[in-house]
């Protein structure tokens, strides 16, 4: 899997009511327990920022070259955020950096609430990936005229 998005089974699990009923509480618990919300992050901030660092510990060094944010497609997706989203994202990154300097999570009222933790970046990344795939399709298309 060499792509800007991390591996996800959500698309397989969501259609099944039983499975998602079982998995969802665990997933919610896991998201909370992973601790990024205590630093005011949203999940999409991580995928593009912290996660590659975590990845590099477990995955081999060649993977480091395609760290998620440093890809042209994700850069294009980031450009597509509204000015407000861009500002808020930069603010969250700065606030979390400061918390990291202080070696302490943020005060509890500044933690990200589960309902605020939306995927604001992912749709844009998916869109850009689709565009790139289409470009590749046209670049390699074989034309048959009937």
């Amino acid at each position: 899997m060499v792509g800007p998005l991390s591996i996800s089974f959500a698309s397989y699990l969501k259609p099944s009511r039983t499975l998602s009923r079982w998995i969802k509480p665990i997933a919610n618990w896991y998201a909370d327990a992973s601790g990024y919300r205590k630093y005011g992050f949203k999940y999409d901030d991580l995928r593009a920022f912290t996660q590659p660092v975590l990845r590099s510990q477990s995955i081999d060094q060649s993977f480091m070259k395609i760290v998620v944010e440093e890809r042209p497609d994700v850069q294009r997706a980031l450009e597509r955020l509204t000015p407000r989203e861009k500002y808020d994202r930069a603010f969250r990154l700065k606030r979390a950096s400061q918390a990291s300097v202080l070696h302490a999570p943020l005060p509890k009222e500044q933690w990200t609430k589960p309902e605020e933790d939306n995927r604001y970046l992912q749709p844009h990344v998916v869109e850009v990936m689709k565009e790139d795939a289409e470009r590749q399709m046209w670049d390699t298309a074989k034309v048959k005229r009937s």
């Binding site: 565009e131 289409e134 470009r135 046209w138 298309a141 034309v143």
Partner: peptide, 12 residues
């Protein structure tokens, strides 16, 4: 169709 699709297809 996408903008790219329009360009490529009309070129074809």
């Amino acid at each position: 169709r996408s903008a790219l699709g329009t360009v490529r297809e009309s070129e074809l």
